[in-house]
Design a protein around this nucleic acid. Structure first.
Lengths: 348, 348
DNA sequence: TGCTAGCACTCTTCCGCATTGACTGCTAAC
DNA sequence: GTTAGCAGTCAATGCGGAAGAGTGCTAGCA
């Protein structure tokens, strides 16, 4: 691809991808001519298609068939979408998105699930949402609650909810005074901190002198926070996994099984998204080598609050998916999600 | 079926179901004769099969094909399993089950997941486990923990873990004395009770005179417990959902999709199990009308601790599934699970 | 030089038809 | 009551020819 493609070749490629996305069938020169380029003859288009085939943009399933786009064709097509993004969504669709988002949502988890639902419903593809739960979580308060059974519940109140699923042994130290001092020290050290700061905290540098006798408790609390973070690192939601089976590309059980096995394993979904560059707005990966799943394309978008990435949404569909629409939806979701998250912040 | 089947007819039916379970192909008279009844000729068996067809036990897909068992044939087959249950599992299989159960398991939730995994792995069918979480949960202690933000965390310590995801507004009543009294009253009323008792508690009958001024808190706590119970009524775990796609019965995408849609909706799974009689040991339901899913059979078993049903395990597979093995596995799981749960009890 | 009409060529898809093979049902003999 | 033997039925397989879709090529035209 040393040389730039002629305008006409580009136009033909766009038309071909458009038609192929809509029909899933090999596209003939006549198809392109009748619907997109009535000013030239099909023979001319045939000649151009021949050239595009030599350049590796399209291929024929067999001699007497039309052309099917290859990866470079999709890439060119996707690369040109940004400019023509104007009317990707109908008014009904944007209204649908707004409505679904204004319904009552209790927890952060609900928001990502809802977002994934909306994306899947509007695009008709499988969607996922990976939220980075640990970002922006601040510790407001820590309490030690002595229980009857000799243990103590560690209660960590954050601005995103309460972490309280772990107890520690309080040994013989059940004296109220001891618990009070420990609580005061814990709040002094941890209060007001973001939990992601605590991943590699250096206690000794902080309050070495006061630490004597509370070392165990501090270690226990740090362990609790770290294990919480590990458990909640990537919160993966997948929606509409079965929608992929509607597309003829996945109309055989073997492929369907492979796809579902990948998509229902949250770890591998998380991996699918992990290696995207954080800097780019939309990542489009096509084909097995890029997307990790056979005959698929994955489009992902990163969602931010301020500078932090709070989550990544993605759509996985057949290579010939409706890129314009998907990118339009993901883009619109940025606005909608931003509004919801900001509103959420104000609430608290 | 006014008259009892002759012994020979029964033997032929059993053989036919055996072969059909193994092969999935219509079974011919010669198949049965060569492997199961060399003492008679295939012509004799043909005559018997003809009679069994007239009685509605078997059918022919077409004139020149072998016979396929119908629901009554399966039912008879299943009904006779109990007696011959002797060697349904190999030693390797029972060892596998024991090993998988002695690996570390943290929570009740883990146990049901592990049980479902084991059942699915040993049988090679889709399995599910519905645990009735609310049974046998006793309230050990209730604490009110005032938080900085003016709210109070309601902490309910049970012998199965801590319920602590809800806060209540403490209004202006933050005086320590008030909180202490409320806590004392709450423990007096709720302490030591099973949470399922609280579904329809009558506060007024209990401690009417002391209740003044704490009504709000009591109502809030009851609401919290009830909503917890509602959320945790049926904890559904499904394992090996994709295994069904390995069987030729589900070798087309349409059926596979329907199956997966049902199986991944926890509500409908819960329904699949809900209408089984609690009294019988194993419930076997065959066909769409009984099982709710097309071309499927469902076998469920109830697991008890004492008299209470703590969970139901089930296997869903093609009609021609290996009933002997499945029932053997579910039965062995009763013992294994019983051991685990009792050990669990001792721990605490 | 670029475009186009026309035509031969290629390859898939579909349909009909004959063949094969797997079973059964029936009948006559034991 | 059982069996051997045989005719009959039906699905599955394979093959050939016709139809259809689309291309590539070539000769002529602007």
């Amino acid at each position: 691809m040393s040389k730039e493609l002629s305008e006409r070749k580009k136009k033909i490629l766009h038309a071909l991808v458009d038609v192929y996305i809509a029909t899933g069938q090999p596209v003939s020169s006549a198809d392109i001519q009748s619907k997109y380029m009535p000013e030239v003859s099909s023979a001319t288009i045939r000649a151009e298609l021949s050239a595009l085939e030599a350049l590796g943009f399209v291929e024929q399933p067999h001699t007497s068939a039309g052309r099917v786009p290859l990866k470079p064709a999709y890439q060119l097509y996707v690369g040109d979408i940004d400019a023509s993004r104007d009317k990707a969504l109908t008014d009904a669709e944007t209204a649908f998105i707004r409505n679904r988002f204004t319904e009552k949502l209790d927890e952060v988890k609900d928001i990502s699930r809802r977002a994934a639902e909306i994306i899947s419903d509007v695009t008709n593809y499988t969607s996922f949402f990976v939220s980075n739960c640990n970002v922006n979580v601040m510790i407001e308060e820590i309490k030690l609650v002595p229980l009857k059974n000799g243990k103590g519940l560690v209660l960590i109140v954050t601005d995103h909810g309460i972490i309280s699923d772990k107890t520690i042994d309080l040994d013989g130290n059940l004296r109220q005074e001891y618990v009070d001092t420990a609580t005061r020290l814990l709040n002094k050290v941890f209060g007001g901190r973001m939990i992601c700061e605590l991943e590699a905290i250096d206690l000794d540098g902080e309050i070495r002198e006061e630490l004597d006798g509370f070392r165990d408790i501090f270690d226990a609390v740090i362990t609790i926070i770290q294990s919480y973070m590990a458990e909640h690192r990537d919160d993966v939601v997948v929606e509409g996994a079965l929608k992929m089976l509607d597309y003829p590309e996945y109309n055989n059980v073997e492929d369907a099984k492979n796809f579902l096995a990948v998509i229902s394993d949250h770890n591998s979904v998380s991996e699918l998204l992990s290696d995207t560059e954080d800097s780019i707005e939309f990542s489009v990966r096509i084909g097995k080598e890029d997307s990790g799943v056979d005959k698929c394309a994955i489009i992902t978008a990163a969602y931010r609050v301020g500078d932090e990435i709070v989550g990544k949404a993605g759509v996985i569909g057949p290579e010939r998916m409706d890129y314009k629409k998907v990118i339009g939806v993901l883009d619109y979701m940025k606005k909608a999600l931003g509004a919801v998250l900001d509103g959420d912040k104000d609430d608290k």
